[in-house]
């Protein structure tokens, strides 16, 4: 396993695109958060909502490079034929797949932490001083939101890895992942029935998982923050299982 991890880390480190995609994640997250916090109308009483969630809004966009990175980790090998070498060197496919997932988790955790902390910092600098409502990592719910957002990005990465392993083609996988993430919110925006809206928000990987960012009005959420992240974890697990199983039973 250590050798497998070392091999995967070498592959990740020696290709230019993962680093660029991680930088893209940081840039997209911080930029969108900065825009969101600068357009909001703030008064002395507050910003009319959940400032933590607002500052972390950048992950709406920042998750896309994470998904692409995760897709390329495996589909890049399929398109270049490298996968045959990988599986010849590591015939135990489950080990090779686990090594990929672990390496990806580590890389996204680092990139995601930088991105999320950057977004919080941008929020602190841009939002007016709100006294006791200010963003602070010492505040329990805020810390949970920040930590949970990093976990969310990791889960999106794993979900994308699972889908890409099952599909084996980068373009199709990116299409499926981005569709899965962004279609649900758009649909629930056009649907007028509140029960359906609630249901969609409970099952969609993005809407459910980002419940982890809520720090106010927790009782009015469609589902609790950790349960929401659990839904995203369920999606990621299902995708990883499907991808891992197909990797085992199929020829490359």
């Amino acid at each position: 396993m250590r050798l497998a991890l070392h091999a995967e880390w070498t592959k990740m480190r020696t290709v230019a695109s993962p680093l660029w995609l991680l930088l893209g994640t940081v840039a997209a997250t911080v930029a969108l958060s900065a825009v969101a916090t600068s357009v909001v109308n703030c008064t002395a009483r507050g910003c009319g909502g959940d400032t933590t969630k607002l500052s972390l809004m950048g992950v709406y966009l920042g998750q896309a490079p994470v998904a692409i990175l995760a897709v390329l980790v495996i589909s890049g090998e399929y398109s270049s034929g490298m996968i045959r070498t990988t599986l010849t060197a590591m015939p135990r496919r489950a080990t090779a797949f686990a090594a990929k997932a672990i390496t990806l988790t580590g890389v996204v955790a680092v990139g995601g932490t930088v991105a999320v902390l950057g977004a919080v910092l941008a929020g602190r600098l841009i939002l007016p001083d709100l006294g006791d409502q200010a963003l602070s990592l010492a505040d329990g719910p805020t810390l949970r939101a920040v930590f949970g957002t990093v976990l969310y990005l990791i889960l999106i990465g794993l979900l994308s890895l699972g889908i890409a392993t099952a599909v084996r083609d980068s373009a199709t996988s990116i299409g499926i992942v981005l569709g899965l993430l962004y279609i649900f919110p758009i649909i629930s925006g056009t649907i007028s029935d509140p029960d359906w809206q609630r249901l969609l928000q409970q099952i969609a990987p993005m809407s459910a998982g980002l419940a982890i960012q809520a720090t106010t009005d927790l009782h009015s959420l469609p589902l609790s923050p950790w349960a929401g992240l659990g839904v995203t974890a369920g999606w990621a697990t299902a995708a990883l299982l499907a991808g891992g199983l197909l990797l085992r039973v199929r020829d490359t």
């Binding site: 966009l61 896309a64 692409i68 897709v71 390329l72 589909s75 890049g76 398109s79 083609d169 980068s170 373009a171 990116i174 299409g175 981005l178 962004y182 758009i186």
Partner: peptide, 16 residues
């Protein structure tokens, strides 16, 4: 393909 799909999606879907 990865770069092309991403660029095209960002160009059309992001504005949406």
């Amino acid at each position: 393909s990865a770069g092309a799909v991403t660029t095209a999606i960002v160009a059309i879907v992001l504005p949406y």
